[in-house]
Amino acid sequence: MRRAPGVLARAALLLVVVGSLFPLYWSIVVASHDNAAMSARVPPLLPGGELGHNAHAVFEAVDFQAAMANSAIVAGTVTVSNVLLSTLAGFAFAHLVFRGRRVLFGLVLGSVLVPALLGVVPMFELVSGLGWYGRLEAVIVPGLVSAFGVFWMRQACREAVPRELVDAARVDGCSLPRVYWHVVLPALRPNALVLAMLTFLTSWNDFFWPLVVLDPVESPTVQLALSHLAGGYYTDYPLVLTGAVLGTLPVVVLFALLARKLVTGLVGGRVNP
């Protein structure tokens, strides 16, 4: 028997949620006022009416439209590719028998913990050697498949796709690519959705690598455009935070649509007795 949380516990949780949401609320407050209002002795605590005006100014100051489009292209491509290729490799590691499988999977596991940014200097050399400096390929291609994705989809495949199903399909004369497409992918749709969302967020939010290989003016992503907006000697916060709100909006919308699936995917669907 577990007791329902008392008043104190509820108050503590509520405080946590307020703390989680306050910086987002505050971004909206700042983004909807002008600089004069924010400089007052007592800052405004409720949203104002300048959001439209500030948004217009953001689009004047930097090429935010191009930044949004670039980020959407990069994150979209990386997401679709990572889901398809991670599932492909995860399926092979989960259910297919081939020599060297254990060693190869050991490599996947080992590389999960090695941060990619440690090779950043030669990565820059490599990518500019390919003529990709300032081009979206530079941020798309290295992200086409991830060790985390392979690990995650292997696990999912073991739990959600019975080996007998794969064997049965093969006995019926189904080739492996067809098993992948017609059996594995449909069965893993819920897991793939969680991986897709995590991949999209990671790619959309990435800053370090785009900063190294893209040009914040010629080929901006949203994050580069934002840091460029904030980069002057004097920072115009209503302008900058309007950009931040606009750049966060797609993420929040996506989250609102898929929160239930994401949370269940991370915490597990276990129901407490």
């Binding site: 949780l13 939010n205 750049g247």
Partner: peptide, 19 residues
């Protein structure tokens, strides 16, 4: 509750740093 607790992790780092 879970969603509200997780939300900060999804906000772009750049936006977090700026606010």
């Amino acid at each position: 509750w879970h969603g509200a607790v997780l939300l900060p992790n999804l906000v772009p780092v750049v936006a977090v740093a700026l606010v």
